[in-house]
Design a protein around this nucleic acid. Structure first.
Lengths: 202, 202, 202, 202
DNA sequence: GATGAATGAGTGTTCATTCAT
DNA sequence: TATGAATGAACACTCATTCAT
């Protein structure tokens, strides 16, 4: 990892725990191990670090979405919610980079309209689309009516969003919190499918 | 409103939109219309303003809870969700003071363990108890099984929590956002009771 | 002299010898004997010091002009160039405050359009008017034709302007330079009046 | 023009409009199109650029003086002030390089004793010698008394010096300012020679 | 109750310069 | 010839706070 990347890494780490304003250039450089003036070789100013992080995040999450979309017709055999676990929980909500970025956006949404919009998009709009699209696929199998699938997607989104704020964007992202999130989410999934007499692998 | 109250009012207004750190004593005093040194007659230091706000909030919300509890066995006649609307939505989530405090706690949860705990308590733990207790009362009427009531309470909490973050702790607390929140929450309530063949006034 | 005045005094002293940019807030505060942060109690920013100096100068020089105008019909007996000596040389060109301001404007004319305009006005336009008005008064006595008076005023202005730049806005404002200026200016006056067969006290 | 010359060119352009201190290595390199470290291949340090400019200027102006001296006994036929126009106005005062250097010296005279001396020499001492020498030559023709020639030279110097500061070292060196300077200078010449019943071509 | 004046510690940022490549 | 990367020192300025009045 080169200096520029280390600055981004350290900055995100600090921003996501203390907020952009509360972190000083001194803090960042101290943690990276460079002099303050050196930072300005890599970034125009403090703001530029935040902007770079946002761009990096949008790139990252866009490519995640691409992977997700190409993986979204799983095996032709039936339907599985496993990949929500893999692609949405594991690679998005639990991913250290993405999780930190979500915290950063959560804190900074009030200071900055651009971040507010990204926050709204990446914590509400896109997750809703992803999750409801999964249930829409379920409806296509004919096992569930479209109306039911719609409602299930909506409920599931509400549940994961609530759990995200409760466990993943609160305190440290510890293993306990991840486990608690996963357990409650899985219980909820099971519940949804129990109603259908299914088990998640339809 | 005396000077001390005006300082608290202005401070909350600024803290909830910019965060504690980002607001200076200058900003506060400028908005109140006093000199910076005058503020120290009323408060020991900047931190003291935040602490006062937290104390005021806990007092306020505790008395709300008292009212709510005494109002929670409504009329002996039947059961109504109306008071969730009145006491939880209107007097808590939409209330300017409470809403600002929630925003403040949301932003400052990462800076300050005390605030993090209050955040967890007043946005997750207590609301969960309030809402599930309402559905528990529903079970006591015998119209709904305890398990169903439990699940309904859980679902309803997830929905209102998600909607709170989506509409009430994002951007300005505009009438549009309040309306959107109320509409989706009411739709959700209706949905829950449709399953029961009911209408919310059981 | 209070702190604010001392800051202005020291600032002008430094600005007029080193230029605005080259003087730091540290330099000023060091010379005044206050901490850097204290300066910001009295002035909004560095620029504000410069602006205050400009305003003070314009006030000062305006009141000088008022005095000069009311003094410009000397004694009814005849006409004397003495007051050019007193009001223009002594109280303007040689005056420490005015001289420093002229140096400051000379240096800063290129950085700042407002200063450039003041420079043009107070070193060229107004002095020209003052000096030619004196010779116009001479013409009114009938001793000199209007055309001659006009030409004399023009010549005299050229001479004093050249001498100002040569002696008064170059190096330190030492007694030698003031003497050299005065001598050459007086020689020039004498020369002008010799042509008329006069002696300056017409 | 090679890199070194481009650096000098750009530097003079910036120095003469903003002053030495106010221009950064960044500014210069940005305008030249090289990296800041590259500049140090060509110049020892920032100061070295200024010194190079001063040396270049002294060389340039010395060779101008040589040309002027060899041209100063014009045609044996009579005497002409035309060459003051050509050699002094056109090739010195109006010349972009010389004009910029004069501005630079004007601004920097207070920061630097060496520059102050150059300023005094090239704006006052040498111009005075050149111009009075022209009028001395006029005296040699016998048309004018030595005393008159002396006074005329002195007056003419005062006029051109004042006009130089008023028009050529103030604001941009626009065509309007050059025209204004030339017009007033020519009027003045005409005036001088009118008194002699001449016309400038004696 | 309120303020004028001051301050030490800190902010983000720019500066000219160096040096290995 | 040129540059990528770094740096120490300085910059203007803001911060929360104090204290005598």
């Amino acid at each position: 990892m080169n200096t520029k990347e280390r600055i981004l890494d350290v900055s995100l780490s600090l921003f996501s725990t203390s907020g952009y304003e509360a972190v000083s250039i001194r803090d960042i450089c101290g943690a990276v191990g460079i002099k303050e003036s050196s930072l300005y070789y890599h970034f125009k100013n403090k703001r530029d670090i935040l902007d770079s992080l946002m761009r990096k995040y949008e790139d990252h999450v866009s490519s995640l979405l691409d992977v997700l979309r190409s993986a979204s017709v799983p095996n032709g055999q039936g339907f599985s919610l496993d990949w929500l676990d893999i692609y949405f929980f594991e690679q998005y909500l639990f991913d250290p980079f993405c999780n930190r970025m979500m915290r950063l956006m959560l804190i900074e949404q009030f200071h900055n309209e651009e971040i507010r919009e990204a926050y709204e998009r990446w914590l509400f709009v896109e997750p809703y689309q992803i999750q409801t699209s999964v249930f829409a696929m379920l409806a296509e199998t004919g096992l569930v009516s479209e109306a039911d699938a719609n409602r299930m997607g909506h409920d599931f989104f509400a549940a994961t969003t609530m759990l995200t704020f409760k466990y993943l964007l609160n305190g440290d992202l510890s293993q306990e919190r991840k486990d608690a999130f996963r357990k409650e989410a899985h219980d909820y999934m099971a519940l949804l499918f129990m109603k259908l007499g299914g088990n998640g692998n339809v």
